[in-house]
């Protein structure tokens, strides 16, 4: 599944000021029992967001919220950009993590570094992970915290972020992934265009390593 992403987005930024945020924290294990791709948003950061222990299928509306957690603060309501610290998304490969971020409303995550599998999973689900230098991320944290309603303007086509004061920052994004995001392309369909190459590889490999093709 691929989703069409925005080409340009101006939105409120929510700062999550801790390093090594793991996917267990992004979406705790009990919610992984779902066999669907949707509905994970209310349980995003469940153990930090609520004061009780959440269970799958539970209505979160009546649960006690943790007023100290950043996403529960009124100034960050409606945020679509998450600002994070180094090694964001480490740990488990669960794609439920980007599903939960997307379902909550995040389209962009900015951090000095991401864990590999999470970074890859984001692109499959219409989330743009942006890597920026640590000093710049640090400066963004200060700006976001200093000014309620702080917004960033992210342009995927131009690969720029415009800060509140008008400063423009360029960011890198892999050309193929950018192309897929902008066009909402289906990876599987793209790969199947090369099915002859796959069959040719298999034929060659079968000669070279026949044991890989023998069934038990």
């Amino acid at each position: 599944m691929s989703l069409t992403l925005f080409t340009q987005l101006k939105a409120i930024v929510a700062p999550l000021d801790r390093a090594n945020v793991d996917t267990d924290a992004i979406i705790p294990k009990q919610f992984l029992k779902s066999i669907k791709r949707t509905g994970f948003g209310p349980n995003l950061f469940d153990e930090w967001r609520y004061l009780d222990v959440g269970e799958p299928g539970e209505d979160c509306a009546g649960r006690p919220i943790n007023p100290d957690f950043v996403l529960n603060q009124s100034r960050y309501q409606g945020a679509k950009i998450l600002l994070a610290r180094e090694n964001f998304g480490c740990g488990s490969s669960r794609e439920h993590a980007p599903w939960a971020l997307k379902d909550y409303g995040f389209d962009v995550v900015i951090a000095p570094s991401f864990a590999d599998i999470f970074f890859n999973n984001c692109f499959k689900n219409g989330i743009l992970p942006i890597v920026l230098p640590e000093a710049l991320v640090d400066s963004l944290f200060k700006q976001v915290m200093a000014q309620a309603g702080y917004q960033l303007d992210v342009d995927l086509t131009a690969q720029t972020i415009t800060l509140a004061d008008g400063t423009q920052i360029c960011f890198e994004v892999d050309a193929f992934r950018r192309h897929c995001l902008l066009n909402g392309l289906d990876d599987i369909g793209l790969t199947l265009v090369h099915q002859d190459a796959i069959k040719k590889y298999e034929a060659k490999r079968r000669e070279q390593a026949p044991w890989l093709f023998s069934t038990q």
Binding site: E95, P98, T191
Partner: peptide, 10 residues
Amino acid sequence: HGIGTSEVEH
């Protein structure tokens, strides 16, 4: 290596 669910499908 580990992969996400979209890649499992892929």
